[in-house]
């Protein structure tokens, strides 16, 4: 009797663990974001990618983060807490008073559309077109559509 009860208790515990475990696993792997198509019209991408709305505060963080936008590696930006700004690209201070939103979006998404020899990475290019890409980045854009819109929203605050 005792043995049987213990067996039941043990199997119930195992079942519980399995359910919890799979829930945790499911949470760790969110479904990959779809790749949204975009269209260049008159040197600009006027429509927000995927129709998303950007968050400027988050965009500022992405601009600094090495593994995200890392914009300051090449651009001078009004982000004073960062000691070192690169100067490979043009300064982005006051960029919103020089360029329209759609033009800024195009430069981030894929500057090569208008300047084929640029060093500026395309942060939202069709990932099927990469050459010799590292395994962990296969099939992925550099930033997600939401992150692109966040950075655009942040840059639009630099007037």
């Amino acid at each position: 009797m005792n043995m049987r009860r213990r067996f039941i208790r043990l199997s119930m515990l195992t079942a519980l663990l399995l359910v919890c475990g799979s829930a945790v696993l499911a949470e760790e792997k969110p479904a990959p974001e779809p790749y949204y198509e975009w269209k260049v019209e008159g040197f600009a991408i006027n429509a927000p990618i995927g129709g998303l709305v950007g968050n400027p505060e988050n965009g500022r963080k992405i601009a600094v983060a090495r593994k995200k936008g890392n914009c300051i590696a090449c651009h001078v930006m009004p982000i004073l807490e960062e000691e070192f700004n690169g100067n490979v690209g043009p300064p982005l201070t006051g960029v919103a008073s020089r360029l329209k939103e759609g033009r800024i979006r195009l430069s981030i998404v894929d500057e090569k559309q208008i300047n084929p020899m640029t060093v500026m990475p395309g942060y939202y290019r069709d990932p099927r077109h990469f050459n010799q890409v590292r395994k962990s980045f296969k099939g992925k854009t550099v930033l997600t559509a939401q992150e692109i819109e966040d950075v655009v929203a942040y840059l639009m605050t630099l007037k």
């Binding site: 490979v88 060093v119 990475p121 990932p127 990469f130 050459n131 010799q132 890409v133 980045f137």
Partner: peptide, 16 residues
């Protein structure tokens, strides 16, 4: 050009 950032040697070392 190669990789996700799609750069070649030339982009840093010839241009900049």
């Amino acid at each position: 050009r190669a990789g996700q950032l799609d750069m070649a040697c030339t982009h840093c070392h010839s241009y900049f």
